[in-house]
């Protein structure tokens, strides 16, 4: 990982960026996010199999943004999140340096968005293999069985909204569930209300989810809520032949009409 450290140090020293977002070793065995502003501290950066968090979530946080121009350690899901954030105008391509990490953990030379796009296009964009099986199993169930499955899972939800906080695409400064005039989504945690929240969250991510699985990983009670959005990834790909986060200019699949769109799902 010396190349990553060298590159980060270089960027900070020549003031190309003011902060490098990456991973560092935490007090326990887990890796935690690091926000390096001092070139002398670039040495604490690590990249290994423990570094799984989607760091793109920090790119839209005002407390990180105000540090200045950012560099970010970016695996494929992070790069795709960055693409989505650029296409939704939450960040600007020229205000960010991507320290791309390839699938085998080596540093990529991502000079600009075009190069990043080229790398993303070459990669496998479907849902991760480990979730495909689970999704297939769920899809085998009858609608009643599947509903029962989700009822059971979602009854555990404590509405901590960790799934939302972990998601780089949930960047609204005021989430719709915080609107209480009127209170469309109930505050209290109960199975019905929990379902409302999770369905709403999934729908807000339809056509935008980049399959990083962070929502499910963040859930303290182990709800596989990432399967909801990942199912939508499959659906959107099936109907519109589009994967999210593949181009900085992509328009939202569900809010644009193309004359050659499939319309088979319109009843």
């Amino acid at each position: 990982m010396n190349s990553l450290i060298t590159r980060a140090k270089e960027l900070l020293e020549n003031k190309s960026v003011q902060v490098v977002i990456g991973y560092e070793a935490g007090p326990t065995s887990v890796a935690r996010p690091a926000f390096i502003t001092d070139p002398a501290k670039a040495g604490t950066l690590i990249y290994d199999e423990r570094c799984v968090q989607n760091l793109a979530v920090y790119l839209t946080k005002p407390e990180v943004k105000h540090l200045g121009k950012m560099a970010i350690v970016a695996t494929l899901p992070v790069m795709r999140s960055i693409m989505m954030l650029i296409s939704e105008q939450q960040i600007f391509a020229d205000s960010i340096v991507v320290l791309g990490i390839s699938a085998d953990g080596s540093l990529l030379d991502i000079a600009d968005v075009k190069v990043m796009q080229g790398y993303i296009e070459k990669s496998d964009l479907g849902n991760p293999e480990k979730y495909k099986e689970l999704l297939a199993e769920l899809n085998k169930l009858s609608p009643e069985e599947r509903f029962a499955f989700w009822q059971k899972e979602l009854s555990k939800c404590i509405k901590c909204y960790a799934c939302r906080q972990a998601c780089p695409m949930c960047y609204c400064t005021r989430c719709t569930v915080e609107v209480n005039q009127p209170q469309w989504i109930p505050v209290q945690s109960n199975t019905h209300g929990n379902m409302e929240w999770h369905i709403l969250r999934a729908m807000h991510l339809a056509g935008r989810c980049i399959s990083c699985g962070e929502c499910g990983r963040a859930c303290p009670v182990g709800i596989p809520c990432h399967l909801l959005t990942m199912h939508l990834v499959d659906q959107v790909h099936n109907y519109f032949n589009v994967y999210a986060g593949t181009s900085e200019k992509m328009s939202s699949v569900l809010s644009t009409f193309e004359p050659n769109d499939k319309e088979s799902f319109i009843i």
Binding site: E88, Q89, Q90, Y171, C172, T173, S251, S252, S255, T256
Partner: peptide, 9 residues
């Protein structure tokens, strides 16, 4: 938040 999805619809 200025995502401008409204603009496309």
């Amino acid at each position: 938040v200025g995502c401008f999805m409204c603009q496309s619809v």
